[in-house]
Design a protein around this nucleic acid. Structure first.
Lengths: 216, 216
DNA sequence: CCGGCGCTCCACCCACGGGTGGAGGCGGGG
DNA sequence: CCCCGCCTCCACCCGTGGGTGGAGCGCCGG
């Protein structure tokens, strides 16, 4: 798909040199067009409102309104515009906050021109492009993988199944229907699994399920 | 960092042609060494035990033991060996299962040689490399982003607080005690927040809380 | 100034959920 | 072979949870 229309970009960073450097660099690449710069989060939001670009290249640490806040507002008010975060170094909380706010790309500032180019193209195309290190940390939060699941594998297969259905919000009657057994049987399984995992009601069971990887 | 020791690889795929093709392709790349092939999950596990490679390139659909199961066992018994999943096309459930099982990379089979090479190098180096489409879906599960997050900020502060306590497994009486209000008040808050977020009981409310970032 | 919203509280209802104590069938391992 | 664990089912009890339809108070903003 040869794009006739260029990818329109807004650069948001509080450091002048970085902004200009990126502007110059991206301007040289065929198919890219930098339509505005912003020195803080507020400016970024108004720049997006004014130009509705395809992508914003966003620094996180900025005065007035930080990158996370700006990302939030842009994603909420201009969903057509994607956000790629570009930051020096980052603690996990900031990374997660940015992704949660709707950033679709995440690059560290030691990324080279080709990385930035690829990230911008992909994100503009509706895909995602995360820094490999960030990907790793993301993966580490998804699966509690192994852990104190000792109580968990004390459960029988049937009990785990019931636990999952409880997490899906089903009532005992609905679970019974789903499993083609009587409600009595479901109650038995539930009582057994509750004592095994050490909870007293469904609500606690659901929390257990999420914290131990049964649910996600 | 010029690596003197090559990245040692095991290829697991049930189709002969794919195995041999990959073997040939990877053998030509400097710094790569294919140490074994496996035609099913069992073979993959034993091959890893025998050669303790740096990375396994793993197909998901395989006889005897599927890729997810094999990944699980490899990650559990040989944590030094990383797994890159390489599959034709994938439903979300399989992707998630594979990542949960400990896969650090995920490529679709339309990936070219350079993509595969980069993924193997990164994963062997302790990073992660996911197909951009997979990254996107991952992001979509992390942040409730938009959706019924609108319902979430329809909640009052008090209601959110009650929701959190429900997630902590407290009964109405305990919540009342914690907040220094009567149980009636708690019930009122609960009824209000249930209708707002569209659930019918605590179990569903807990699931909502986890899926929308109120709990973690 | 007054309306609305958020928080507080009440009484009443009853269904569903959870606890107890049983029982039978079926499969695998000691 | 026999026992144990898993799955299945039953009757009975009663507490908690969830639904309804009120009500009063304080605060903010139109």
């Amino acid at each position: 798909m040869p794009d006739d229309s260029p990818i329109r970009i807004v650069i948001a960073d509080d450091q002048r040199m970085i902004r200009d450097g990126l502007d110059l660099m991206l301007g040289l690449i065929d198919g890219f067009e930098v339509v505005a710069q912003a020195a803080d989060g507020e400016e970024a939001v108004t720049a997006v409102a004014a130009h509705s670009p395809d992508v914003v290249l966003m620094d996180l640490r900025m005065p007035v309104l930080d990158g996370v806040g700006a990302t939030e507002r842009i994603r909420r008010d201009h969903p057509r515009t994607q956000v790629v975060v570009l930051t020096t170094f980052s603690d996990d909380a900031e990374v997660l906050a940015a992704l949660r706010a709707g950033a679709r790309g995440y690059l560290t500032k030691d990324a080279g021109a080709p990385e930035i180019e690829r990230a911008l193209r992909r994100v503009a195309g509706g895909e995602a492009e995360l820094d490999p290190g960030v990907q790793k940390r993301l993966l580490e939060m998804i699966p509690p993988a192994s852990g104190r699941a000792e109580a968990l594998d004390a459960l029988t297969e049937r009990e785990r199944e019931v636990l999952r259905l409880i997490g899906d919000g089903l009532s005992n009657a609905e679970i019974a229907a789903r499993l083609y057994v009587s409600e009595s049987t479901v109650k038995t399984h539930i009582n057994n699994l509750f004592t095994k995992i050490g909870v007293r009601d469904r609500a606690q069971a659901v929390t257990f399920a999420f914290r131990n990887g049964v649910m996600s």
